[in-house]
Design a protein around this nucleic acid. Structure first.
Lengths: 140, 140
DNA sequence: CGGGATCCTCATGGATACTG
DNA sequence: CAGTATCCATGAGGATCCCG
């Protein structure tokens, strides 16, 4: 099989994209379906922080994800748990202790999220510059 | 410099994540700032379709991104343009013709988006299974 | 053709109070 | 400690009409 890695070849790229955007039985492509559950303010940040912290407790995680409310952390964790990305381990002590952890599936997503995160960190300034320019051009 | 690539090393990974989550002057980490503008239903799908189609016209793109409304395509494209990810080329003909295209910055994001897209396509079934299981367990 | 301008709806998500 | 339950504000996003 052709293992020759030819990065940036338009043809190969188009094939890959086409596969990603292929509609499934539900009328959605995998990306769209994924985004419906994942395109929100917190999911990605929680995944990254879980990747960093290992098996944090609820409030540990809450203090790490700066700005998140108690409610939204709960909601986000439940959603991640539902998608099989996170496990919730309850230790029935008093006071109760709960630890969250990425599943193998969650860890595989973490790798992708890190790619996105590194992109964001790398191009942050460039984007900020573009925004400024755009606004000054449209500030008529 | 230590170029030894040691994938999956927790220590290196934690360092990377820490850098991604590092707060900037505005009190936000790069990812958070990025997500505020990009975590929505359409941006990623539009970027992927632009990567596929090359320099599509407005309605060409609209018919490719299944389900998107005229308004949301406009809004999304403006936002991407503002972030320096997309260029808008107007040909003052009658009727007017407008072509959209990824900038180099947009193309670099496309690569990352493809990584996410491939992840979504690969693990779609697994996620669906997890959801089913979760629901049957919580259907008391 | 490629939008802009409005109106409207509903889901996201923030604040607060309460609980096992 | 780790939530649940409510209430409420905001804005994302859909439908529709209009316009150069």
């Amino acid at each position: 099989m052709g293992v020759t890695i030819t990065e940036n070849q338009p043809v190969e790229r188009r094939k890959k994209i086409a596969k990603i955007l292929e509609e499934k039985a539900n009328g959605l492509c995998p990306v769209h379906d994924f985004l419906i559950h994942f395109a929100n303010k917190w999911s990605m940040l929680v995944v990254l922080n879980l990747g960093y912290a290992g098996s944090p407790r609820f409030n540990e995680l809450k203090s790490r994800v700066s700005g998140i409310s108690q409610r939204m952390l709960t909601v986000t964790l439940r959603s991640l748990e539902e998608d099989g990305l996170v496990t919730r381990q309850l230790y029935p002590e008093i006071p109760p202790r709960v630890e969250y952890q990425l599943t193998p599936l969650g860890k595989s997503l973490l790798d992708v999220m890190m790619g996105l995160g590194e992109w964001a960190a790398k191009h942050e300034a460039e984007i900020a510059k573009a925004r400024k320019k755009f606004r000054s051009r449209h500030a008529d």
